[in-house]
């Protein structure tokens, strides 16, 4: 019976959206973890993932409350529904952890990632890169006569698409932050 329980605030209101909790299909979830920003806390969380064989697709961490020394870790992970449930339970019982939220099931959320993308080229390629950057609302943060560094923010898929488009136009390298995510609306 608990298998059918939906968390409060879930956007999935229909029983048709329920998935078999014992299913072996893979799901991707965005989980945020609020922790004490003490020495080694990131290693502790990462060690949990590696030690128990969980996946990390993306990981972002920074102190979000300087006075309270609290950091927010945003981790995107993939696993079966049972594994996702275990990951949350394992995170929740860690001593420096205040709260764990699974944004994927707890309701609508926004996810953003920032990337810096270096593209080198001249002539047509250079013009086309700049035009596409404009389409994607990327900013130019550095330029030479034969290169640009673009700054682009958006959902991870948008950044993937932008980087793919830059590849034939002279992509040199890209740096990505990993995603930061928050639930929509007034509540946590």
């Amino acid at each position: 019976m608990n298998a059918l329980a939906l968390k409060k605030g879930s956007s999935r209101k229909s029983a048709y959206d329920l998935k078999n909790p014992q299913g072996d299909h893979q799901e991707t979830h965005t989980i945020t973890v609020l922790v004490d920003n003490e020495a080694g806390v990131l290693a502790r969380v990462i060690g949990l993932f590696s030690g128990r064989g969980y996946n990390i697709d993306s990981l972002t961490v920074a102190e979000v409350d300087h006075a309270g020394h609290r950091s927010r870790i945003t981790v995107v992970t993939t696993g079966t529904p049972a594994v996702i449930e275990q990951i949350k339970a394992q995170l929740e019982r860690m001593v420096p952890v205040y709260a764990v939220h699974d944004l994927t099931v707890e309701g609508p959320s926004v996810e953003r990632e920032l990337a810096l993308v270096k593209v080198a080229g001249t002539g047509e390629h250079r013009v086309e890169a700049l035009r596409l950057a404009d389409v994607f609302r990327a900013n130019v943060v550095d330029t030479t006569l034969e290169s640009f560094v673009f700054e682009i923010t958006g959902a991870p898929e948008k950044i993937d698409t932008f980087i793919e488009l830059m590849r034939p136009l002279g992509l040199v390298e890209a740096g990505r932050t990993g995603i930061a995510a928050l639930s929509r609306g007034a509540h946590i």
Partner: peptide, 11 residues
């Protein structure tokens, strides 16, 4: 809580 549903799903 992490012991629950780890190996065996319970009702």
């Amino acid at each position: 809580p992490s012991s629950i549903n780890k190996n065996i799903r319970v009702d």
